[in-house]
């Protein structure tokens, strides 16, 4: 870490499309800081996959790296194909909540079950931002959206909890206010042998915040901060007390044989015969 961190080391000279105040800037910045602190002078050791949605634009085309920007919800299987053929690369998926746990949920669960050694970063802004603020599987109960103008009549999915139970080796959730913890989690995730999932609760001031009554992105961040409780704190709270709280921290950190290990073991075995 002798050299000073500069985003320009890792980014193409292309204006990002994000709105002012968007949490995607924070995720992009924090991830690249983690990469820098891990000692990567460039992104050669990485491959990035993303689907459709604002946060899928974090790596593509902005990262000076190999990036594949694919169809809505399908970044995880594409990343699986890349990783299986190039186990030496760090394969990282960026996607929004709609992409990862809406249309692409089945792939997420299966990737965790297979324990494919990729990192999935889900930027959860609780809304379909790019298409104009429609209800997501992560939108809190009762909140109004453009497709639930009388309030969301469905419950929100706890993606981290789900993926922890599906077999992931590393699961963490932070908000865009927890930048130093998030940065450390990115490092842990990339170094995890097996499936790693990071959920970042992020602000969409344009399609979410202003509709539910936040003046600006800053107010949303304050809301995140005021309502976040750590995993340890959460363990002492009742389900009722946890209503509308954001539980942050590391949910899973374990070791298990990864998919590339088990697949290549089979290849070795088959070639003996």
């Amino acid at each position: 870490m002798s050299e000073e961190f500069s985003l320009r080391t890792y980014l193409r000279d292309i204006q990002p499309p994000f709105c002012a105040g968007c949490g995607a800037f924070t995720v992009m910045n924090t991830f690249l800081r983690a990469v820098h602190e891990m000692g990567h002078k460039d992104l050669r050791g990485f491959a990035f996959c993303s689907g459709i949605g604002c946060s899928s634009w974090i790596p593509s085309p902005h990262f000076k790296a190999d990036t594949i920007h694919v169809t809505h919800g399908r970044s995880i299987p594409v990343a699986t194909g890349v990783k299986l053929m190039r186990p030496d690369l760090n394969v990282v998926v960026f996607g929004g909540d709609g992409d990862i746990v809406g249309i692409g949920l089945s792939h997420l669960i299966h990737a965790a079950r297979r324990n494919v050694d990729i990192t999935v970063v889900m930027v959860n802004n609780m809304i379909y931002g790019m298409t104009g603020g429609q209800v997501a599987p992560t939108t809190p109960f009762k909140l109004p959206t453009t497709t639930t103008p009388y309030g969301n009549f469905e419950r929100a999915l706890d993606a981290s909890k789900l993926i922890a139970s599906a077999g992931a080796c590393y699961v963490a959730r932070w908000t865009t206010t927890h930048v130093s913890q998030l940065k450390e989690s990115f490092k842990t995730a990339v170094n995890t042998k097996g499936f790693a999932f990071i959920e970042v609760i992020s602000q969409c001031p344009t399609a979410f915040g202003r509709r539910v009554g936040f003046k600006d992105a800053g107010e949303m961040l304050q809301w995140f901060k005021a309502n976040s409780v750590t995993v340890e704190e959460a363990n002492k709270l009742t389900e009722e007390e946890l209503q509308n709280k954001i539980v942050v921290g590391e949910f899973v950190k374990k070791e298990a044989p990864s998919l590339t290990e088990t697949v290549y073991a089979v290849l070795k075995e088959a070639q003996k015969k």
Partner: peptide
Amino acid sequence: ATIIGASWT
């Protein structure tokens, strides 16, 4: 989707 990823390797 998976074979698309693999093809790019």
